[in-house]
């Protein structure tokens, strides 16, 4: 299952984007990258994305707005939020309210980030 899943990572920080690409690729996932919300919206149209890892804090259109637009286009597309704020109740609740499947704090060791991602994925698949 792992190797077949195509993840779209969305983050305006190039180094972070590259890190996630390498991390998830090393775990056998297929990874696409988008440096912003607009690019992500364009990519989900033409690429067969299984799950989106979406940073909340981004310029132009932020993660919350991108999530809302993604859900308009593809309501069933699972989106997992990435946040640098740690557990920010207000933003997380807003994202969950808009249909996000879960959230991952960037302030975690990589192994934990992958573990959390897998846990969220398993709950999506159980549904």
């Amino acid at each position: 299952m792992e190797g077949k899943i195509k993840i779209l990572v969305v983050d305006d920080e190039t180094d972070a984007l590259e890190l996630f690409k390498d991390l998830f690729a090393s775990k056998g996932y297929e990874v696409e990258c988008a440096p912003g919300g607009m690019e992500a919206l364009a990519l989900v149209e033409k690429s067969n994305i299984d799950v989106v890892l979406l940073d909340i804090n981004m310029p132009v259109i932020d993660g919350i707005e991108t999530l809302a637009k993604l859900k308009q286009k593809k309501p069933d597309l699972p989106v997992v939020m990435l946040t640098a704020y740690g557990y920010d109740e207000e933003l997380v609740n807003k994202a969950l309210g808009l249909g996000a499947s879960g959230y991952i704090s960037k302030n975690l060791p990589l192994a934990q980030i992958v573990h959390t991602f897998k846990t969220v994925l398993s709950t999506i698949h159980r549904k």
């Binding site: 180094d15 972070a16 890190l19 390498d22 991390l23 640098a84 060791p109």
Partner: peptide, 18 residues
Amino acid sequence: VAHEINNPLLVISGRLEM
């Protein structure tokens, strides 16, 4: 400050971990 540091920190510690 936390937000600004968090991203580079993530990259440094992440790359080190990898």
